[in-house]
Amino acid sequence: QAPETKIVDKSRVACDGGEGALGHPRVWLQIPEDTGWVECPYCDCKYVLKGSKADAL
């Protein structure tokens, strides 16, 4: 199944896999201003900063 994409309001987000005990260790991710998105290294969930150029795609 394809990784999930989430639109977020802040450039710093936490990801834990979203499945409680079945998820992964919580990691904090920083969305770079130049790209407007970041992917979780564990679950490949893509976080897109709302209003960024990546959000316009």
Rank of each mutant, 00 (worst) to 15 (best):
V13A: 00
K46G: 02
I31W: 01
V13K: 00
H24F: 03
I31S: 02
C40Y: 05
E19I: 12
T35W: 05
A56S: 13
K6P: 05
C43G: 03
D55P: 03
P41N: 02
L22F: 11
R12H: 11
C40P: 06
T5M: 13
A56T: 14
E19R: 11
L57G: 12
D16L: 07
G36F: 03
C45F: 15
Q1P: 12
A21R: 09
Q1M: 15
D44M: 15
K46E: 07
R26K: 08
C43L: 01
K53W: 08
V38S: 01
A56F: 13
D55S: 00
W28R: 00
E19Y: 11
P3C: 15
D55Q: 01
D55N: 01
D9I: 07
I31F: 02
G17P: 05
I31Q: 02
Q30A: 07
Y47S: 05
E4R: 15
P25R: 11
C45T: 15
D9F: 12
V27C: 06
Y47A: 06
K53M: 10
E33F: 10
Y42K: 14
W37G: 07
A2D: 11
K10V: 13
K10G: 10
V48F: 04
A14D: 08
I31R: 01
L57H: 11
W37E: 06
S11W: 07
C40R: 03
D55K: 00
C43S: 02
K10Y: 12
G17R: 00
P41A: 04
R26M: 10
C45N: 15
P3D: 10
V38G: 00
K50G: 07
G23D: 07
L22D: 11
D16N: 05
C15A: 00
Y47K: 03
G51M: 01
G17K: 02
G51Y: 09
R26T: 10
V48Q: 03
W28S: 01
P3W: 12
I31P: 05
V38A: 02
H24Q: 04
V13I: 11
A54S: 07
G20L: 02
I7N: 04
T35C: 04
V27A: 01
D16Y: 11
D34A: 09
D34W: 06
E19S: 10
L22Y: 09
G18T: 08
P41G: 04
V38N: 03
K46L: 09
L22V: 08
D44E: 13
I7H: 07
I7L: 12
G20N: 07
A2T: 12
C43V: 03
C43R: 01
K46P: 01
P32V: 06
A2Y: 13
R12M: 13
K46T: 08
P3V: 11
S11D: 10
R26C: 10
L29C: 02
L57E: 13
H24T: 03
G51C: 08
Q30P: 02
K10W: 08
K53E: 08
G23Y: 07
V38Q: 01
G51L: 03
D9L: 11
A54L: 06
S11V: 11
I31K: 01
C15P: 00
E4L: 15
D44K: 15
E39S: 13
V48P: 06
C40N: 06
L49V: 05
W37A: 04
A2S: 13
V38D: 02
K6R: 11
P41C: 07
S52T: 05
K10E: 12
D44S: 15
V38E: 02
A14E: 12
K53N: 08
W28A: 01
W28F: 06
Y47W: 07
K53D: 09
E4N: 15
G36E: 01
G20P: 04
C15Y: 00
A54D: 06
P3M: 14
K6E: 10
T5Q: 07
P3Y: 14
A54I: 08
D44L: 15
G23H: 10
K6G: 07
D44G: 15
P32W: 05
A21T: 11
L29R: 00
L29I: 04
A21W: 05
K10N: 12
S11I: 09
L22M: 13
L49Q: 04
E19N: 10
Q30D: 14
L22E: 12
K46C: 10
E39G: 10
K50W: 06
W28T: 01
V8H: 04
I7K: 06
R12W: 14
W37D: 04
G17C: 05
D16W: 05
E4A: 14
R12G: 10
I31T: 03
L22A: 11
G18W: 04
G51I: 01
Y42N: 06
Y47P: 05
V38Y: 02
A2L: 14
W37C: 01
D9N: 08
R12E: 13
K10R: 10
E33C: 11
E39H: 13
S11T: 13
G23N: 13
G20H: 07
Q1K: 13
V27W: 02
V38C: 01
